[in-house]
Design a protein around this nucleic acid. Structure first.
Lengths: 190, 190
DNA sequence: AAATCAACTTGACATAAATCAAGAAATAAA
DNA sequence: TTTATTTCTTGATTTATGTCAAGTTGATTT
């Protein structure tokens, strides 16, 4: 089944024919998972992309036993491991849910066959890829150029709601600092 | 004019019809620039994508007056500022040539019209975007997770030739460290 | 070839942030 | 509600890396 929100979201990029909607309906599945569910474990191949209808997810790597959050995504975002999904090779990142969530999933091979059968879906795929690539570059820019304080303040400004939904220790590593440094920063700035 | 190398490079992704080759030939231009030429200055909109036929380029940001190299690209790579080109908004990165170079350029609007007129070109655009996105993620992963020493050794292993073509100070900031730290690291590892 | 300029190295020192550790607060479970 | 677990805070200390500075080497230019 295809949610109205998902249809809206992608038809904004390019109108969907009825045939394409039908095909998407046939190959996607809506699933519910409780908080803390692992969607992808490192070493495995990411063979699905998920759209978050409701909920919140994070990706993290392990650095010497410690978890480092690489991204946080919420409603109306697509989530998957970039390296693993596109290259269909083992992932070095993990994906888990931070809240009870409702997701729509689409398998890698099903997606490829849609790209083959519906040329116009490549427009949608291209534009979405460009969008998420841009987001990713902005995160990297922030990590490289901003000080810890700047990064904290940017996030506070851009996504204030995230601070109520995500444990601060995850936000700390997402911003590229230890939980202690982050805690001290918050005490200072506030 | 369209170089054989460029045709090869993109037709590997999806075969090019003669009409598409003709169209590409009409809208691309081969240009030669000397070393140190600036292709993009921050604040301006990146309105072209370049394919490097021969030569080498780097992108950099300014961080408190200091240049921070964000990427280095050589032959057979496409270069542009991701944020600026896709969003057609002012760039915060600069692009300059580190060697005398031969490039093939394609304007943003010409590219969009090809996407419109040749649906199959969206396959090529999508796959290339996926590829460069993956590269970018790998760079970010390296910055986040590896120690300075690991990053140096990875680069030495993956792209040893770069050390002979690029001033080490640029490589230092590309690897996210000061020129001094990089110099000490090299003395140590060698 | 000399002079000029840019790139690289090395040392001394400063500093931001990590780590270690312990306790407080908040949240979840019994 | 009490207990247990997780999250967050605060302090003391260490460490990696940045900054400043001076000198050397190498490359370009005249």
């Amino acid at each position: 089944m295809l949610s109205e929100v998902l249809i809206q979201s992608i038809s904004k990029i390019h109108p969907l024919s009825q045939a394409l909607i039908d095909r998407l309906s046939n190959v996607t599945r809506q699933v519910s998972f409780p908080k803390k569910t692992t969607l992808l474990t490192q070493g495995n191949i990411c063979d699905k992309v998920y759209f978050i209808e409701k909920g919140l997810a994070r990706a993290f790597y392990l650095k010497e036993g410690q978890e480092v959050t690489s991204w946080l995504m919420q409603e109306n975002d697509f989530i998957f491991s970039v390296n693993s999904f596109y290259g269909q090779k083992p992932s070095y990142e993990n994906i888990e849910l931070l809240e009870d969530s409702i997701l729509t999933s689409l398998g890698y091979h099903e997606l490829q066959s849609i790209y083959r059968d519906f040329l116009e879906f490549n427009i949608i795929g291209r534009v979405l890829t460009e969008y998420y690539y841009t987001l990713s570059e902005e995160r990297t820019f922030s990590l490289r150029l901003q000080t810890t304080k700047d990064r904290y303040e940017s996030l506070l400004k851009m996504q204030p709601e995230i601070f109520n939904r995500v444990p601060l220790k995850y936000i700390a590593s997402y911003l590229g600092m230890s939980a202690e440094t982050f805690s001290r920063l918050r005490a200072k700035v506030k």
